[in-house]
Amino acid sequence: MSYFAAVLMRSGDRWKGEEASLEGCESLDDLGDVLRDVAGDVRLLLIEQDDEYAAIVRLDDGEDEPRAFLSDGHAADEYPMAAVVAEELAEVGGDDLEDDEDAPPAHDSAPFGEADVVEDIGTPAVELIAMCEHEGTLPVDLLLAVCEKAGCGEVFEELRG
């Protein structure tokens, strides 16, 4: 199972990007370190795997802690990188499985994390959630939509090749 990961960074109004290796990343803070290694006012780590989930990890200049969003909590049960992202995040809207004694130990399918992670660069939280819930929207489509609204769609598409 392979994943696609890219770091997009904005300085002023100019975006640049590069593919990212997540080898050795075992926590959200480790993913933040990937972003700390690049310069930019806004730094995004975008992850997509097997058309199953999208993750957005963000670290802005001057911030210490990364913020993150995972499109589908179920992915954390099958994909180690999704589990890394979800580990420290709460389900958007609360945990429906928490009170169900008969539920298997698993993540709910709802998104996890901060839905407003890209609000100030063009994608409101309600729209990000709607894309996650829309049947037929692939994780890469979600990431591309976010990038297009932020002004870095071409950079993302070039990296996806």
Rank of each mutant, 00 (worst) to 15 (best):
M1N: 08
M1P: 12
A5S: 14
A6W: 01
V7I: 15
M9Q: 11
S11E: 15
S11G: 12
D13Q: 11
R14C: 04
G17C: 10
E23K: 13
S27C: 05
S27L: 03
D29E: 15
D29F: 05
G32W: 00
G32S: 06
V34I: 14
V34E: 02
R43H: 03
R43G: 02
L44P: 00
L44I: 06
L45E: 05
I47Q: 01
E48C: 13
E48L: 01
Q49L: 04
A55Y: 04
A55E: 03
I56V: 15
R58P: 07
D60N: 14
G62D: 02
G62V: 07
G62S: 03
D64Y: 07
D64T: 12
E65D: 13
E65I: 05
P66I: 00
P66L: 02
R67M: 01
A68Y: 01
L70I: 15
S71V: 05
D72K: 05
H74K: 13
H74V: 08
D77E: 11
D77I: 07
E78D: 14
Y79A: 03
A82S: 03
A86Y: 01
E88L: 00
A90K: 10
L97D: 12
D99Y: 03
D100Y: 01
E101S: 11
D102S: 14
A103L: 06
P105L: 08
P105V: 13
P105E: 14
A106L: 13
P111N: 07
E114F: 07
D116H: 07
V118K: 00
I121N: 06
G122V: 13
E127Y: 03
C132K: 09
C132V: 13
C132L: 13
C132I: 12
E133D: 15
H134P: 00
H134W: 11
H134L: 12
E135G: 04
E135H: 09
E135Y: 07
G136W: 08
T137K: 08
T137P: 00
D141N: 12
L142S: 04
L143Y: 12
C147L: 02
A150S: 11
C152H: 04
G153I: 02
E154S: 14
V155Y: 01
E157T: 14
E157N: 10
E158I: 03
G161L: 10
